[in-house]
Design a protein around this nucleic acid. Structure first.
Length: 267
DNA sequence: ATGGTGGTACAACCA
């Protein structure tokens, strides 16, 4: 079984790319982030015509997550328990559409779009950190309930956990940029402490291996990217992993997302 | 010059 995650940066703008990609890779499950639409605008036919069931969680033009599967799509869940809400300036806080789950072929798949902290002192940063902390607590509970659970926490984590996960760590440190700060890395590492495993890194060793390249500043041709998209597997699922890859080719050409798909093969 | 883009309620906001 082949499972994958991909921040598409608008599903409508990327519909042809996504369809071509599904046909080319023959993926069984695709966790999607940044659909950037509500249900009314969601391209349901794209998936149905290609043999996939799909579940979507989107409320406006921001964020939005989905799971497409052709190995079953059961017990769909939107948001995780106690998921922190956010409202800019403290008004009208909502639980943003950043997490959706479904059971696909026996695997509990979560498509996650972790909030961007914007800046180290921005109000989005504590939101990001509490969002991750709450998710980790829930995930710990799932494992405590069933140590053999096959769970995939996959998506755009907006964190570069190691120095090699950005093209120039000195640039990030000197400019006090996000994604590499100590609190963000601690929030990511907490999932590893819980027992989850980054199952992609062993098959795609760095340095210089990334999943995201900013559209600006010629970042992609200059190979200046960041590894911020991850598949964290529960122990039982990690044992099944036989391979993983980052589809850097998909970042090429006109009309590409700024993120590359990340794929995991299960035996 | 570590700038250059690209997505979305088309106008600012988001990454």
């Amino acid at each position: 079984m082949l499972i994958a995650t991909w921040n598409v940066n608008s599903l409508r703008a990327r519909a042809d790319r996504v369809e071509d990609w599904l046909r080319r890779t023959d993926a069984d499950v695709l966790a999607i982030q940044e659909t950037k639409c509500k249900d009314d605008n969601f391209p349901w036919e794209l998936f149905e015509m290609n043999g996939y069931e799909v579940a979507h969680f989107g409320v406006n033009q921001w964020n939005g997550v989905a799971i497409a599967s052709r190995v079953g799509l059961d017990d769909v869940e939107r948001t995780f328990a106690d998921q922190p809400a956010f409202g800019k300036g403290g008004k009208d806080p909502i639980q943003e559409p950043r997490a959706i789950a479904a059971t696909c072929g026996g695997v509990r798949v979560w498509s996650l779009y972790v909030p961007n902290g914007r800046a180290r002192e921005d109000e989005h940063m504590p939101y990001k950190l509490s969002w991750l902390d709450t998710l980790n607590r829930q995930a710990a509970g799932w494992l405590a309930e069933n140590p053999d659970a096959q769970i995939a926490l996959m998506g755009d984590w907006n964190i570069a956990p190691q120095d090699d996960d950005v093209w120039d760590i000195d640039y990030f440190v000197e400019n006090e940029l996000t994604h590499v700060s100590e609190p963000e890395r601690a929030a990511f590492d907490a999932f590893l402490d819980t027992g989850f495993v980054d199952v992609v890194r062993p098959h795609t060793p760095g340095p210089g291996v990334y999943t995201y390249w900013d559209y600006t500043k010629l970042r992609f041709p200059k190979r200046e990217g960041m590894r911020i998209d991850f598949v964290l597997a529960s122990p039982a699922l990690a044992e099944r992993v036989t391979g993983a890859s980052i589809d850097r080719e998909e970042r090429k050409g006109k009309g590409a997302s700024d993120h590359a798909p990340v794929l995991v093969e299960l035996g």
